[in-house]
Amino acid sequence: MNTKILEEVNKLIKEDSLTRTNIKGVNLYKTTTYLPRTPLTYDFCLVFVLQGKKIGYLSNNRFEYDSKNYLVVPTAMPFECETYASKEEPYICILIDIKKEIMQEIISSISKEESKKCEDVQISVFQDKVTNELEDSIYRLLKMLQSKEESNILGESILREIFYKIAIGENSHFLHKMFLENKAEAKMIRSLRTIHHEYNEHLDIPRLAKEEDMSVSSFHTHFKKVTSLSPLQYIKKIRLHKAMDLLTRRDMQVNETAYATGYESSSQFSKDFKSYYGYPPKEAKASFEII
């Protein structure tokens, strides 16, 4: 990102924090502290790094996103992220929620020539290059955010512009397929939404497969292709991420958290939590405060 962009974002964000802006779903984040590999859930969003960098880990996949490469997360995904930042060079990013209705309209309007590049899909999360045109859009977005009136009147138009540039990006294959209702990728997105809404209930894999008119084996195959995790692995990670939030931000007790996240056994919850985070759930609050 160029220096003009950094000048504008520093007018909007002063201290280490998440800063909400005049456009709903557009947030700024800054930190001067290096963070080791830490669990983090992204949900249907774009991440533009203006300074510093992050490395995201999803199973065996590694994503390095910085000022030259943005990240697209077209569905809720439990990551592990390492953040590179210092007082001399803070990590600064823009987080933009993807508005489904706008993206649906854009993708359905894209020419067949653009859609031809959407034949092969690997994993749902992808990186793409920050073009000069995209930098220009981000610069104008940051200028606009400084005025509540401009944000209210022109906010949707600048987001539409950014979404269009994402949708014609070199690696936007999955983004296209997830909006085609009969495609396996779209079916997986619907199942992922069900899991996120019902993570605290009993989740039956055969039922999820049947709801999308798929066999269990086909469901497993496509689910792993989209998320890089098996359905059970994904459900466990989502529950553990939710549990961390309940323990650290809502100050819930361990037993209470276990049942609130769909576990039938508090001891099994504690075992899974320690295996994933490296410490027992009763120490979560202290570990969170250290980070």
Rank of each mutant, 00 (worst) to 15 (best):
I168G: 02
E211T: 03
P281D: 06
D245I: 09
M244V: 00
E170D: 10
D66P: 10
T221R: 14
R207S: 12
A260H: 06
V226K: 01
T21D: 03
R207V: 11
G278H: 03
Y34V: 13
S215Q: 14
E64Y: 04
I162E: 07
K87M: 10
P36I: 02
D251Q: 15
R239G: 01
K177Q: 14
D272R: 01
M1Q: 09
V226S: 08
N22W: 00
E133I: 09
Y42S: 08
I23E: 03
L35M: 13
A284F: 02
D245K: 15
E89P: 04
S275W: 01
S267G: 05
R239V: 06
A186Q: 01
K129T: 13
L46W: 02
F273D: 03
V9Y: 07
S266T: 12
N22E: 10
H241E: 06
L134N: 11
R20C: 07
P281S: 01
Y42N: 13
F126M: 00
T261D: 08
V26S: 11
T75V: 09
Y234F: 12
L159C: 03
Q51A: 08
F269N: 08
K210N: 12
K112I: 12
K24C: 03
Y263W: 05
S137I: 14
R62M: 13
K14Q: 12
K4I: 10
V254Q: 12
D128R: 05
L192R: 03
F163G: 03
P39G: 02
M244E: 07
N171R: 07
P39Q: 04
E15F: 12
T194V: 13
V226W: 02
L95K: 05
E212W: 02
S267H: 11
E212L: 11
K165C: 04
F179W: 04
N152G: 05
Y84I: 08
M214R: 06
A76F: 05
S266G: 10
Y57S: 00
I92R: 08
E133S: 15
K187F: 04
F126N: 01
K24V: 11
S151W: 04
Q104P: 10
D128S: 02
E133H: 09
S270W: 07
I189T: 08
C45V: 09
Y199I: 00
K117G: 04
T194H: 08
I98Y: 01
S59H: 14
L142R: 05
K271E: 11
L134F: 11
D272H: 03
V130D: 05
Y65G: 08
